[in-house]
Amino acid sequence: MIVLSTLVSGVLLGGFYALLGLGLSLTFGIMRTVNLAHGDLVVLASFLALAVTQMLGLSPLVSLIVLVPVMFGLGYALQGLVLNRVLKDGMMPAVIITFGLAFVIQNGLLMGFSADRMVLRQGTLETAGVTLLPGLTVGVLPLITLGAVLALMAGLQLLFRYTLIGRAFRATSDDPQIAALMGIDPKHVYALAMGLACAIIAVTGVLMGMRSNFSAFDGPIRLIFAFEVIIIGGMGSLNGVLVGGMILGLSQVIGGALNPSWFQLTGHLATLAVLIVRPSGLFPETIDRS
């Protein structure tokens, strides 16, 4: 029973990680660059949700109505006004700018909110559980999260496959110069992609903020987990994100069960192992290539 509940909690933790990896995978798939402020944007979303719930008296899940468009706009502006300006100079400027942004966000949050650990409260939802078997109870929040990941992945699939703008995303990811010849403005597409990623980050920030408490300096570790998810799942592969999240969640939970201080370490080692055995990940580039 202990084994089973360990596995189940690993899988459920994996849902959070998959969500975390989804936004990063999207920007990598389309722009071929890693946003080093990804984790800090997730934490920023958690703090914004906190502010919205306090100011407007909304519950965290309802606050998404405000948060998703705000984060979308923020992402669009980040790409459109800042990152698009350095596109032609290779990946180094984007890496350095997003690294700098990470420090701006962390310390901005520190000053704006304090160094205390915060948590989002949605009534009793965080602690609610469903008993599947005697002795095996599953939290409602992880189930919601898993559902959110699946819904977002399906939505992205539909978008990429069946809409004109979705095809424009894929065309731009394949070959931005030729996409421009089709009348697509690659910079607009990039900004939309970053906006979309930040909208997903809003959902991530709220769900993760309800799962456990957060502080201004939690961004880097979230970035690392998100990165590990896409390394394991295969770079630029949206479907790989789900499996990548599960493997990371399972290896952390199993490591933590063996020795509590190994929790993160085993996750990192699993990632490095994948890098050694299959450097292109378990599912190299599947979705947006389909």
Partner: peptide, 15 residues
């Protein structure tokens, strides 16, 4: 565009 089908390649031409 390598990730698009023939028909999607044609469709994107009408973007």
């Amino acid at each position: 565009f390598r990730s698009l089908t023939v028909e999607d390649n044609l469709r994107i031409g009408a973007y």
